[in-house]
Simulated scan of single mutants.
Amino acid sequence: MREDGVPGRARVGWTSMGVGFDRGMLVRAAVICGLLLFVLLALPRLLSAYYISVSTGVAVFAVVALGLNLLFGRVGLVSLGQMALLAFGAWVAARLFFLTGLPFPVVLLLAGLITAAVGTLLGLPALRLGGLHLALITLMFAGLVAIVVPTTNFPNGGSGVLGHTESSSGGLAVRRPGIAESDPAYFRYTVIVAAVMFLIALLHVGSKAGRAWAAIRQSEPAALAAGVNITLYKLYAFTLASFMTGVAGGLYAGYVGQLYSYQFSGARTIDSVTLLAVVLMGGIFSVWGAVVAALLQQLLPALLNDWFTFFQKNPDFLLVLFGIGVLQVIVTAPEGIVSQFPRDMRRLGGLLLRLVRRPARSEAKSEAP
């Protein structure tokens, strides 16, 4: 029984420490750990080299989608510049690789921190103005990156901070950590880093910051009346999302090996809008919707290109599918696939069970004297 007298689920946990966990939470944690072990240990053995590469991209973009998920789903801030921040984080990581001998985890951390600083400066002017202004400013930033990168000698190697090379030789490639030089090993490494980012997000959601974000999303005047520093917590959310995107950029640099301007077509404004679309489809109110969003953005195009030659010739047709998906989410499933799909499966299971039981009951009644 809860304090308000409403029956609740039984709770088990470290009551002496004041910490409790309901059984549903423990079950979910066990399922997540089991899935993570399957992805780390079994999945690389089952996939071809091509789909291992695609799966690495899924892990990278799950972190990018997670940052946008926190911004939009938890605080109500619409950012259309996450793909541009990904490009910036990858460039920072690549320069650190070329200029220093720092370990890979340190490079990832520095790439995340530097990108967080840039993201904070980017979002600061618009935070007092409202979500639409933030969306416009981040969209302009994405457009700026999309213009500057292809028209300049993108600093991707060579000497100095702004070194550039057209070579793709292995000596100039972005180095991977010694324990993850092969593609399967780097996939596992990327998944582990992504899991750490998701853990950080979950800890924030359940903390004071998460409660403040929820209050801001529900009503800024009510949050202000409750003593929440709206500007501070908005800025904190944007900084955290930028940090995660910068870490993803470092993982992306090690994923592709050598950076060129064409690889950063993802900074185009259309791709920023696509990222927002898949995050909405995945589930904006759950951090696990970011995983579904990454599957939609990276795995779905790979599968369609592999199965149908039509999509190889018309890649932009995927935008039509995403547009239909966003419309379906807005109309029928505002919580996204991550919440709607299990609910629909339970309903389908219940329907099938009733259909199976109905003939059995009819037979029993007919046999009765």
Rank of each mutant, 00 (worst) to 15 (best):
R217F: 04
V75M: 09
P150R: 09
P105S: 03
E363H: 14
H204D: 01
Y260V: 13
A30Q: 03
G250C: 14
N314G: 01
R358C: 03
H204K: 05
V63T: 06
A333V: 06
R343N: 13
L99M: 01
I114Y: 04
Q328H: 09
T309R: 15
N305L: 00
N156C: 06
L129F: 07
I147K: 06
V320P: 06
Q258T: 11
Q297S: 13
A237R: 12
L144G: 15
V149N: 00
L129G: 06
T231A: 03
D183N: 15
P359N: 10
Y252C: 06
E166F: 15
E335L: 10
S159N: 12
A195N: 02
F264G: 15
I179W: 14
R347D: 09
S219K: 04
R28K: 10
G158D: 05
G24P: 08
A142K: 03
T115P: 08
G336F: 12
G89M: 02
Q263D: 10
S207G: 08
G57Y: 04
Q312N: 13
A302L: 05
L202G: 02
H133V: 13
N314L: 04
A29C: 06
Y252M: 05
V291E: 00
L353R: 15
L127A: 04
H164C: 04
D4S: 15
L296E: 07
G34V: 12
R176F: 15
A94F: 02
T332Y: 12
P125R: 11
F141I: 06
S207C: 04
V193Y: 14
P7D: 14
L276N: 03
V58C: 01
D344F: 11
V12G: 04
V27P: 03
P359W: 09
M1P: 14
M244Q: 15
V196R: 00
A360Y: 12
G89T: 01
F98D: 06
K234F: 11
L77E: 07
A173E: 08
S79A: 11
A222N: 05
G257V: 07
L40C: 01
Y262F: 14
R175I: 01
V196I: 12
L240C: 10
V31T: 03
L139T: 03
E181R: 15
L36G: 14
A212W: 08
F88K: 09
T245L: 12
L43D: 01
I270D: 15
M140Y: 10
P359G: 12
L85H: 07
H133Q: 09
L134S: 05
Q218A: 12
Q218K: 10
D306M: 00
V228K: 04
T56E: 09
Q218V: 08
I216K: 01
F154H: 03
L352P: 02
